[in-house]
């Protein structure tokens, strides 16, 4: 009894892939070698642990052929743009703060206002302005007011004089004009003639206007109808094309599905047959 199965035979035994003859030989061997038997038993029970581990669920990405390149569209939510955008905003804020820190950016506020500064702060010296007493200010105001009043008065008097002069001259010319109108009284018949002539002219102008607009309108409507029918025709053509392509793809899909179903059915039938046999 010098038979000693090698490891590949033992593996085949573990997975029930030995023929009867070999299996009996291995079993015989194991009976006389309890340590090997124990090892195999341990492996067997460990395999049961391994089988407890279930597959992880994954969402498969879709692949798109782009010329010779393959583009992967991942459906992983973890790497969505929103997440990346948030990271981006956070990073730019941090950068801003860093820049502020290194340039000594500061905002200070005092009675005279708000200061934004970079670098070292420089104190702004306030210039000393000689102070004025209330009496001084009153005096200066009084003087300027008096001056203004004087000049205003003289200007008003001047304007008043000018206006009265002009009024008088206008009156004179008006009187003269009225006088002349009274002298040349117009013949009524001339006026009537003139009115009739005016009426005629208006009539013809109106007639021309109406006919021309009518023509333009007709032309426009004609064009519109032509354009619309052309557009309808195009729309119909493209609809027909779309229906045609939809039908084609439906046909393709059905064919693929049918062949797949046939194959699956065939396989089910063979499996059933095999089991029956």
């Amino acid at each position: 009894m010098s038979y000693k199965p090698d490891e590949s035979t033992l593996v085949a035994y573990l997975y029930n892939e030995l023929n009867n003859n070999d299996r009996t030989k291995v079993e015989q061997y194991l009976k006389t070698h309890p340590e090997k038997r124990k090892e195999l038993d341990e492996i067997k029970s460990m395999r049961q642990i391994l089988r407890k581990w279930e597959d992880k669920e994954v969402v498969e990405p879709s692949f798109v052929l782009d010329n010779n390149n393959v583009v992967v569209y991942s459906k992983n939510i973890w790497q969505t743009s929103l997440f990346r955008a948030a990271i981006g905003v956070a990073a730019s804020l941090a950068l801003l703060m860093l820049v502020g820190y290194f340039t000594n950016f500061s905002i200070t506020k005092n009675e005279t206002g708000i200061y934004l500064s970079f670098g070292k702060q420089v104190k702004v010296k306030e210039e000393a302005i000689p102070s004025l007493t209330e009496a001084d200010i009153k005096l200066i105001m009084q003087e300027t007011l008096n001056k203004n009043n004087d000049s205003l008065l003289s200007k008003i008097i001047e304007v008043e004089n000018n206006i009265s002069d002009e009024l008088i001259t206008y009156q004179k010319t008006n009187d003269r004009a009225i006088q002349s109108i009274h002298n040349n009284s117009i013949d009524e018949s001339i006026i009537q003639q003139y009115v009739v002539q005016l009426k005629e002219e208006n009539k013809s102008i109106l007639f021309d206007l109406v006919t021309s607009t009518e023509n333009v309108q007709k032309q426009y409507v004609n064009d519109l109808m032509a354009d619309f029918s052309l557009y309808l025709e195009e729309q119909r053509q493209s609809d027909l094309q779309m229906i045609q392509t939809s039908f084609n793809s439906l046909k393709d899909n059905t064919e693929v599905n049918q062949t797949e179903t046939n194959q699956i059915l065939a396989s089910i039938i063979t499996t059933v047959n095999n089991q029956n046999n």
């Binding site: 590949s8 033992l10 593996v11 085949a12 573990l14 341990e42 492996i43 029970s45 460990m46 642990i49």
Partner: peptide, 27 residues
């Protein structure tokens, strides 16, 4: 070769068993 595969599988299972035993993970 198929034989190499079997030998590797046996060695692998044996190692795995030893490691799990050391971690006190049993059936």
């Amino acid at each position: 070769s198929e034989n190499t595969v079997k030998t590797r599988l046996y060695a692998g299972l044996k190692n795995l068993k030893t490691i799990l035993k050391k971690k006190n993970i049993t059936k």
